[in-house]
């Protein structure tokens, strides 16, 4: 499977490596032509305002929205979760997102960098060591959204149809469980 990683800004190299480590073909996505080549897409960690700015300037914004609507499997970590959320709080004024996930996300909800943390949590029934960096959390979810992990009483991993999002960064650890879940449970058969 060809798996694209949106490579505008952020830790896209770590996601590209995780894709390769799972036995799939990683593809840098910076252009519409590259988006149309891939079977699945990952939105990396980084600064959501920077990534949206670049996506709009390089005519990727609407094509990614369209691809999500047409059922492309997409996984977003941290900034990627914000980019997939239908609604955000504490964003910049009129901050746009690709959307698709029926959730409300609070940006930098766990605090500033001094509050960034690592912690053990349960993901899809198994234990996982998770790294949270200026992380968002899910404040409110729609009826079709499944919660896969929680931390501090808030959802930090959610799934809805073809979309998966986590507040934390599995790409910064050696544990491939979240990437595997994305490929095996969400991408399979699409």
């Amino acid at each position: 499977m060809k798996v694209g990683v949106l490579a505008l800004q952020g830790d896209f190299r770590e996601h590209l490596k995780a894709v390769a480590d799972c036995g799939h073909t990683p593809v840098d996505v910076r252009r519409v032509s590259e988006l149309h080549e891939v079977d699945a897409l990952i939105l990396p960690g980084g600064e959501s305002t920077t990534i949206i700015h670049l996506a709009q300037n390089f005519a990727l914004f609407q094509p990614i929205r369209d691809a999500i609507a047409q059922g492309l499997p997409v996984y977003g970590s941290c900034a990627g979760m914000i980019l997939l959320a239908d609604r955000i709080v504490d964003g910049v004024k009129d901050q746009k997102t690709f959307g698709g996930l029926d959730i409300t996300v609070r940006r930098n909800a766990f605090g500033r960098q001094v509050d960034s943390f690592e912690s053990d949590l349960t993901f899809n029934g198994a234990s996982l060591h998770a790294v949270f960096i200026r992380a968002p959390w899910v404040e409110q979810i729609g009826a079709d959204v499944e919660v896969l992990s929680t931390a501090a009483d808030h959802a930090v991993a959610v799934r809805q149809g073809n979309l998966l999002a986590t507040s934390f960064h599995p790409e910064l650890t050696e544990d491939l469980a979240v990437h595997r879940y994305f490929f095996e449970e969400i991408c399979k058969g699409r």
Partner: peptide, 22 residues
């Protein structure tokens, strides 16, 4: 849930999120 703040991983990880940026 045991939480660890200020670890080398969260400090270095923060810089990873800035990559490709100005």
């Amino acid at each position: 849930m045991s939480e660890a703040t200020g670890t080398a991983r969260v400090k270095r990880g923060m810089a990873e999120m800035l990559k490709g940026g100005v």
